[in-house]
Computed example of a mutant assay.
Amino acid sequence: MGRLERIFHAITFEVLAVSLSIIGLAIFTDHNIHHLSGTMIVVATIAMIWNVVFNWVFDKFVPGQKEKRTLKTRINHVLLFEAGLLFFTVPVMAFILKVGLWEAFVMDIGVTIFITIYAFVFNLTYDHLRAYIVAKRSPMLAN
């Protein structure tokens, strides 16, 4: 996956994730939708940067065809990614929403649980769609 595709992947992932996260937080918290939107845009920006860096490093340690990754590898990928992201986003959420670290942590855990499931489904779907498109465009490259 080249640099431009990594950027496309990250942006597509984050636009969907932000939209769905704002809706979820608005339903389950008393925070203003405008504050949640701003917070999630900042969190998404952090996540996009982390996504590119983390996936680049992960791919160096776990080479090969992505569509052939095992369930264990995919679960480890998602858990490591989300744990690293929590480290950066909890303080940011606490600061922007003017809540304590514990409340920010609980909110972020809720988002993280959702995003973990979402990331698994998104990446599995993306990898298989990508492999299908590559195979259709260049049958010789698919083998």
Rank of each mutant, 00 (worst) to 15 (best):
Arg3Gly: 00
Leu4Glu: 08
Glu5Ala: 03
Ala10Phe: 02
Ile11Val: 15
Phe13Cys: 05
Glu14Ser: 14
Glu14Met: 09
Val15His: 05
Val15Asp: 05
Val18Ile: 15
Ser19His: 02
Leu20Phe: 09
Leu25Gln: 06
Ile27Ala: 09
Ile27Thr: 10
Phe28Cys: 01
Asp30Tyr: 00
Asn32Phe: 00
Ile33Thr: 14
His34Glu: 08
Leu36Glu: 02
Ser37Arg: 10
Met40Lys: 09
Ala44Val: 04
Ile46Leu: 12
Ile46Gln: 06
Ile46Tyr: 06
Met48Thr: 13
Trp50Val: 03
Asn51Met: 10
Asn51Gly: 12
Asn55Lys: 07
Val57Ser: 03
Val57Tyr: 11
Lys60Gly: 03
Phe61Ser: 08
Gly64Ser: 05
Gly64Gln: 07
Lys66Met: 05
Glu67Met: 01
Glu67Asp: 13
Glu67Phe: 08
Thr70Asp: 05
Leu71Cys: 01
Thr73Gln: 15
Ile75Ser: 04
Ile75Asp: 03
Val78Tyr: 05
Leu79Gln: 07
Leu80Ser: 12
Phe81Cys: 04
Phe81Pro: 01
Phe81Arg: 13
Glu82Tyr: 04
Gly84Leu: 06
Gly84Glu: 07
Gly84Ser: 10
Gly84Ala: 10
Leu85Ser: 10
Thr89Arg: 04
Val90Arg: 11
Pro91Gln: 13
Met93Cys: 08
Phe95Cys: 06
Phe95Leu: 14
Leu97Tyr: 01
Leu97Asp: 02
Leu97Met: 12
Lys98Pro: 00
Lys98Ser: 14
Leu101Asn: 11
Leu101Tyr: 14
Leu101Asp: 03
Glu103His: 12
Met107Thr: 06
Met107Pro: 00
Asp108Met: 11
Asp108Lys: 10
Thr112Phe: 03
Thr112Arg: 06
Ile113Cys: 12
Ile115Glu: 12
Ile117Cys: 09
Ile117Asp: 01
Tyr118Val: 08
Tyr118Gln: 10
Ala119Cys: 05
Phe120Leu: 13
Phe120Arg: 12
Val121Cys: 09
Val121Leu: 14
Phe122Val: 06
Thr125Val: 10
Tyr126Gln: 10
Asp127Leu: 02
Leu129Gly: 01
Ala131Thr: 06
Ala131Pro: 00
Tyr132Trp: 15
Ala135Asp: 08
Arg137Lys: 15
Ser138Asp: 14
Ser138Phe: 09
Ser138His: 14
Met140Glu: 13
Met140Trp: 08
Leu141Ser: 13
